[in-house]
Write a protein that binds this DNA or RNA. Structure first.
Length: 922
RNA sequence: GCCCGGGUGGCGGAAUUGGUAGACGCAGCAGACUCAAAAUCUGCCAUUCGCAAGGAUGUGCUGGUUCGAUUCCAGUCCCGGGCACCA
């Protein structure tokens, strides 16, 4: 009786289905545990071996926690709105709902074969109206809330209107830019539109103008992804940045709480670091520079973290989009400025930030006046200053900032050195440790100390004030697209009106054509019968991908509730996600957005916790390992990699699935594509050897490996363990199918501990020896520790070691094998169930008790110590573990190898680290 | 360009966080079983010098700290991820 994995896996998958083994209740005596995967976007390409890496890891952990006695919530769903489906619709005319549903079916089938313990009764799909009803509902909460800075939390807008009515603009506690101060009476007398415009400046979800990538030729707004070198990916048409009305989430109000919240969660330090950098909190000063020859009140505001360098300012740079550019530009410079503005319009933000080789800019002709020194300095515009950062203007200090320095050199602007010998004349020095020179009242001060001193002076003189700045900007929340959640908003006379929550969901209407609407609006703008609602017009943008994914973890808790997005009692029971597993590519975007939504929900009393994910585990990417064949130019002859340099060849991707390691299956290659049917091969040593390169796993590179194929060939248990065996979950690594045999052999070897090919049953029910118990308990300790630490690759090797040792010891005893199976269940659930049943157990192993470590089997009395001389290991000696240092020294010095190295000299020192090593220094 | 991560045998990786570098597996080589093959089992397997015993070198590169560094520090090169409309 051999290991029939296909039969076994089908049998148990059916059993789990029939017994609803993975269905989880919201009421349970046991402590709860919530294990969550980042749900996938169901792409048309189906699942490849990279996807399940994190899913297997979380599945192992979820199963482990269940064995440890927890009520484990482990759901899965689909992030099913998104650009690719819409793009596919444009190309093929098929409705995204149809293709998405098909893709989900494919994903589901693939996932099912791997034997995950998901509770599929809780599946969510973000594109399902029953789901996005609640996304819209939450959007309305964001729209109808503002951030009360005094209270430090979001509140319903009614508290703001009440405050305005009783105290005017002071009632809010802060004035938004562009809103003039007003009294309570003013407020009451304002017309509806004025009031609404003011409220819009406070709403957590708000609409204003923002820049998009506009492609005139395609008549559409493009994603950054669709723009390559300033041209559209499709068609290569020019792309410029254009202002359009957009929706935003006021995430900046949460900047501090998003920072503070990081202290309460278990994310890796680099992950926290990335989020902190994204938020980019800095302390500094905002100050105003007057402009020579301009009316009083025309000032340029700059934000700087280094007010100590104020006397080193040699010029100012405005963002080309800065509102004062037109006003300041002198007649003589107008033509040059206009030309430069045309250039900048074609540059993406990314290009503008990363440009270092080529310095560009243009002089406006105007001069600003340094408020402290009175010096006049030229005002330039340059692409490296972005309108959205700080005030959109900087004071340039060439001796302290390299970009300013390059700019000054390039345009021959004289550089003032305020840091004496710390500046070498060739490159900027951003030090804070120099003593200031040529700096007026700051002369002789250490720069560090001068920062605060300078700000005090700015405040005293009324020129500027202390200011905390954030690099993070409010999050763009609208897309000029079809396949996303429609906004539950209509517009009337320029005022956004929220739909009544009772009318939700606002369903996405069917369209026939996915082309853009007029003026760059989304496809919905073409359906006038949908957009026209009496005197109102519906918002035609849709929400971005992260809308649905910002709160999905809550919906899993209560997925079928039609009265609430998630019942409060249920979210109180499940609480935070205990472990969240997903890729680092989501390190910032998705995590910050869902953290913000959670905080808003918390502030509004919808849930009882304000951080969604207690612990985050990052999974590395699985890269593709591409294989290449070399076609001799203008022939149908292919030459093996080792001989390719003797010919002029073209490199062509070969499908990794027809290559064994690096050896091409030439017959399969001929059948792969009609054009290769009559291919001939120039071999080396009788083989065709392929070239190898690690690239992103992608269909177009023919380096994707479908898990179905591997599951079919080796079984789900082998596949699961092999994915884990590849290396640490959090590290990226190339996929290579070659090693999977080893894991499969391990499972067969395990099987042979129970059954022999010829003898049949070999397992026995007799008491185990201490030596056998030691093998087991060593394994218990290792597996439990590794599983807790998400070190699944070392756990798999520990299983291998254990089975090797049991085979060596000829141990087939139930006492040992039973607990071993329980340890193995999370990793290889099918074979464990089968063998558990073989051992005579009734019921599923899913609910077995996790083995308990018994230390008595692990006690050691002796250890083999490595003996080093000057740090180099020279020999090993067995030494009793309880021996004291003096005795150890005696033993070691008596050793002949040690004596040989000592050459009769006395040692200078002997380092003895109990249970580790001995080092003799001579 | 900026931020984050990673570089260890032919390959994936291990190393109790400063204490025997290369566990486990793949590939390879040699052998056993077999008519043969598959499966299985045994042995070898970083580089280099040496018949051997044994020695030297070795964790991207250059330095430093230490009795001792894959591990800590400084610098540097290469690769991957993110940079706000891919998800």
């Amino acid at each position: 009786m051999d290991y029939q994995f296909r039969t076994i896996e089908q049998k148990w998958q059916q059993y789990w289905k029939d017994h609803a083994s993975y269905q989880v209740s919201n009421q349970c005596e046991k402590p709860k545990f919530y294990v969550l995967d980042m749900f996938p976007y169901p792409s048309g390409a189906g699942l490849h071996v990279g996807h399940p890496l994190g899913y297997i890891a979380s599945d192992i952990y979820a199963r482990y926690k269940r064995l440890k006695g927890y009520n484990v919530l482990h759901p899965m769903g689909f992030d099913s709105f998104g650009l690719p489906a819409e793009q596919y619709a444009i190309e093929t005319g098929q409705h995204p709902a149809t293709t998405t549903a098909n893709n989900i079916t494919t994903f589901r089938n693939q996932l099912d074969k791997i034997g995950f313990c998901y509770d599929w009764s809780r599946e969510v799909r973000t594109s399902d109206p029953g789901y996005y009803k609640w996304t819209q509902w939450l959007f309305l909460h964001l729209f109808n809330s503002w951030y009360n800075r005094r209270a430090g939390k979001a509140e319903p807008l009614t508290t703001l209107t009440d405050a305005f009515a009783s105290a005017g603009s002071d009632g809010a506690g802060y004035l938004q830019p562009g809103i003039p101060p007003f009294t309570a009476t003013d407020w009451q007398q304002y017309d509806h539109k004025t009031q609404q415009d003011i409220l819009m400046a406070y709403r957590l979800a708000f609409s204003t103008y923002g820049e998009v990538n506009w492609c005139e030729a395609l008549g559409t707004v493009l994603a950054n992804d669709e723009v390559v070198n300033g041209l559209s990916e499709r068609g290569g048409h020019p792309v410029v940045r254009k202002k359009m009305r957009q929706w935003y989430l006021r995430i900046t109000e949460y900047a501090d709480r998003l920072l503070e919240g990081l202290e309460t969660v278990q994310f890796s330090e680099p992950m926290k670091e990335m989020q902190r950098n994204w938020i980019g909190k800095s302390q500094g000063a905002e100050m105003s520079f007057a402009v020579a020859g301009q009316p009083e009140g025309t000032t340029i505001k700059v934000y700087t973290t280094r007010p100590d360098t104020i006397f080193g300012v040699d010029f100012m740079v405005l963002a080309p989009e800065h509102e004062l550019v037109a006003q300041l530009t002198t007649a003589g410079q107008r033509a040059a400025i206009d030309e430069y503005l045309g250039y900048v319009e074609s540059r993406s933000e990314r290009e503008r930030m990363s440009e270092v080789k080529q310095v560009t800019g243009c002089f406006t002709g105007a001069y600003a006046i340094n408020p402290l020194s009175g010096r006049q300095i030229p005002i330039w515009i340059a692409e490296y200053v972005l309108a959205g950062y700080g005030t959109g203007a900087i004071m340039a200090v060439p001796c302290g900032d390299q970009r300013d320095h390059s700019f000054a050199e390039h345009f021959a602007i004289p550089i003032t050195n305020i840091i004496g010998s710390h500046y070498n004349g060739h490159e900027a020095n951003p030090t804070k440790d120099a003593i200031l020179e040529k700096s007026g009242f700051l002369n002789g001060m250490l720069m560090k100390d001068a920062i605060g001193f300078a700000i005090d002076r700015l405040e005293a003189d009324g020129i500027g004030q202390r200011k905390v700045n954030y690099r993070m900007r409010d999050a763009g929340f609208s897309r000029q697209r079809y396949w996303g959640e429609p906004f539950p908003i209509t517009w009337q006379d320029g005022v956004a009106v929220a739909m009544d929550a009772s009318a939700l969901p606002l369903e996405l209407p069917f369209v026939k054509n996915y082309g853009p609407g007029p003026e760059g609006e989304g496809p919905l703008a073409n359906i006038t019968e949908w957009t026209t609602q009496g005197s109102h017009r519906r918002e035609t943008s849709t929400m971005p991908g992260y809308a649905g994914s910002s709160w999905y973890f809550l919906r899993y808790m209560d997925p079928h509730n039609t009265n609430s997005f998630c019942d409060r009692a249920v979210s109180d029971y499940w609480g935070q996600v205990d472990v969240y597993i997903g890729g680092t590519e989501h390190a910032v975007g998705h995590l910050l957005y869902s953290r913000m939504w959670t905080k808003v929900c918390f502030d509004l009393g919808l849930i009882g916790f304000d951080e969604p994910f207690r612990k985050l585990v990052n999974q590395g990417m699985i890269q593709g390992s591409s294989r290449f064949v070399y076609r001799v130019r203008e022939t149908r002859q292919f030459v093996s990699a080792g001989l390719k340099d003797q010919y002029e060849t073209d490199r062509i991707h070969a499908d990794v699935n027809i290559v064994d390691g690096v050896e091409l299956d030439t017959a399969a290659f001929r059948q792969w594509k009609p054009e290769y049917a009559d291919a001939t091969f120039i071999l080396e040593d009788g083989k065709y050897i392929c070239g190898v390169e690690t690239e992103k796993m992608s269909k177009s590179k023919y380096n994707t490996v479908n898990p179905d194929v591997l599951v079919e060939k080796y079984g789900a248990d082998t596949f699961r363990m092999y994915e884990m065996f590849l290396g640490p979950v959090e590290m990226s690594k190339p996929w290579d199918t070659k090693g999977i045999e080893g894991v499969h052999r391990f499972l067969r070897k395990l099987w042979r501990l129970f059954f022999d090919e010829t003898k049949g049953r070999v397992w026995v029910d007799v008491p185990a020896t201490d030596a056998e118990q030691k093998i087991l308990h060593k394994t218990i300790r290792k597996i439990e520790g590794d599983t807790e630490n998400f070190s699944f690759n070392t756990a798999v090797s520990a299983f291998m070691v254990c089975v090797n040792e049991l085979a060596e010891a000829n141990c087939h005893k139930k006492d040992i094998l039973g607990p071993l199976l329980v340890l193995l269940t999370p990793y290889a659930p099918h074979i464990s169930e089968e063998l558990w049943q073989v051992l005579g157990n009734t019921g599923s192993i899913l609910d077995a008790a996790y083995p308990v470590l018994d230390e008595q089997y692990l006690a050691e009395t002796e250890k083999e110590y490595p003996i080093s001389v000057n740090g180099k290991v020279r020999t090993n000696i067995r030494i009793a573990t309880d021996l004291k240092q003096a005795d150890v020294e005696q033993v070691v010095l008596n050793n002949e190898v040690v004596q040989k190295w000592l050459e009769g000299k006395p040692p200078k020192r002997i380092v003895f680290v109990p249970n580790r090593m001995v080092n003799i220094v001579i």
